[in-house]
C-alpha cells in the first residue's frame, strides 16, 4: 500500500450509504478505501456487493448517505468523476452486433481521457480478438473486453463486480495477472466483489465481509492469516472451557477442536488451563470467510 499524501482524499468514502429494495436494504454502509489498496467485498449472493458497486459506479441512485471517489461526489454526469473510475459489471451494455474493435471505438467517443494506445496494448496483453462480433464472444473474452473498456482511460479507481466469475482457469489467471500488474504500482485502488475466494489471496490487501446488506467485518488479509487458527487439544474431564476468540467449538469426550479468531489469546488461555497435545493449524481464506459470514449471519438476525 502506498503512503497517501496528507489531506489527499481517500479513493472511496462511503458515509452511511443506503439503498432500499422491497425485500432488502443495503447499509447504512460506512467504508473508506485508501489509494493503492485492493479491497475485496466478500459475501454470499444477495449480500449487497453488486448494489454497493452499482451505487459507486453511478448506475444506482442511493436512498441515503453519501459516496465519494477521490473527494468527488459520485455523479455520472461529471467528467472528473468518470475519469477516475473504471467499472466492470456483470453486463456492460456492449453493441453485440459490432466487433470488439468497433465497440472500443464507440467507447473512445464517450469516455473522457480515453487512450487508443492504452486500449490497444491492453487488448494485446489480454489476447483479445478485435475483429470478432461481441455477440459471438466467449464469456472470458467479454470479460477481457470489459476490462479493456474499464482501463483504457487510465482510471485511478477500479470497481470490479465478480470479474472472474464463470471464467475457465486459464482466462481467470490471465485476468488476475493483468489486475495484479495494474495494482502493483500502488497507485490504483480497487474495490472488487467476489465469491471466488482463491482470488482474494492473490490480489486483496483487505477484505470487507458483507452479509444481509451490512458490513460484518473489515480486516487486512495478513491480519486474518495471523489471527485465525484451528486448534485441537485435550483437556481432562467433561468440560467446555470459556475460551477467548473461539467461534466454533467441537468436543468428543476429552478431545477438543476449536476455531478461533484470536489464536494468541486462545493459546494463552489453553496454557493456563493445562491443555495437552495442543496442535495449531492455519486456515484457508475460504474457511475463514465461511466462519466470519456464519457469525455475521447471527449478528444480523439478532439485530432484526
Amino acid at each position: 500500500m502506498s503512503e497517501r499524501p496528507r489531506h489527499a482524499p481517500p479513493a472511496i468514502r462511503l458515509d452511511g450509504l443506503t439503498k432500499r429494495f422491497p425485500r432488502f436494504q443495503l447499509g447504512p454502509l460506512d467504508l473508506t478505501l485508501e489509494p493503492g489498496t485492493v479491497l475485496a467485498l466478500v459475501g454470499p449472493n444477495g449480500a449487497g456487493k453488486t448494489t454497493t458497486l452499482n451505487c459507486m459506479a453511478g448506475l444506482m441512485v442511493p436512498d441515503g448517505g453519501g459516496a465519494e471517489v477521490y473527494g468527488l461526489h459520485v455523479d455520472p454526469a461529471r467528467t472528473e468523476y468518470r475519469r477516475e473510475v473504471g467499472y466492470v459489471g456483470e453486463e456492460s451494455g456492449f453493441f453485440l452486433r459490432w466487433t470488439t474493435g468497433r465497440n472500443l471505438r464507440a467507447l473512445a467517443e464517450l469516455v473522457p481521457g480515453w487512450s487508443d494506445e492504452r486500449a490497444r496494448r491492453l487488448a494485446e496483453r489480454l489476447d483479445l480478438p478485435l475483429d470478432k462480433l461481441v455477440g459471438k464472444l466467449s464469456r472470458g473474452n467479454r470479460t477481457k473486453l470489459a476490462l479493456v473498456a474499464a482501463l483504457a482511460h487510465g482510471p485511478r479507481l477500479l470497481l470490479l463486480d465478480e470479474p472472474t466469475a464463470g471464467l475457465d482457469p486459464v482466462v481467470r489467471a490471465e485476468v488476475l495477472d493483468v489486475l495484479w500488474e495494474i495494482t502493483e504500482d500502488g497507485e490504483h485502488a480497487v474495490l472488487y466483489s467476489t465469491h471466488v475466494l482463491s482470488d482474494v489471496s492473490r490480489l486483496a490487501d483487505e477484505l470487507a465481509f458483507l452479509r444481509d446488506g451490512r458490513l460484518v467485518l473489515r480486516s487486512g488479509r495478513d491480519e486474518l492469516d495471523e489471527r485465525w487458527r484451528r486448534i485441537s487439544f485435550r483437556l481432562p474431564g467433561d468440560v467446555d472451557p470459556e475460551l477467548p476468540g473461539v467461534v466454533e467449538h467441537r468436543r468428543v469426550r476429552a478431545e477438543h477442536q476449536v476455531i478461533t479468531r484470536d489464536a494468541e489469546a486462545t493459546r494463552q488461555r489453553l496454557g493456563s488451563l493445562g491443555a495437552e497435545a495442543v496442535e495449531t493449524s492455519r486456515m484457508t481464506v475460504d474457511e475463514i470467510a465461511v466462519q466470519i459470514l456464519k457469525e455475521g449471519h447471527h449478528v444480523a438476525r439478532a439485530a432484526n
Binding site: G58, L59, A77, Y81, R82, L107, L110, P112
Partner: peptide
C-alpha cells in the same frame, strides 16, 4: 428492442452523461 436487450444505458454511462441526457 436491441437497446433494451443489450442494456445500453450501462455502456452510455461509461461517459459523463446525466439521466436527463
Amino acid at each position: 428492442t436491441y437497446r433494451n436487450e443489450e442494456r445500453r444505458a450501462r455502456l452510455l454511462m461509461a461517459g459523463p452523461i446525466t439521466p436527463r441526457q
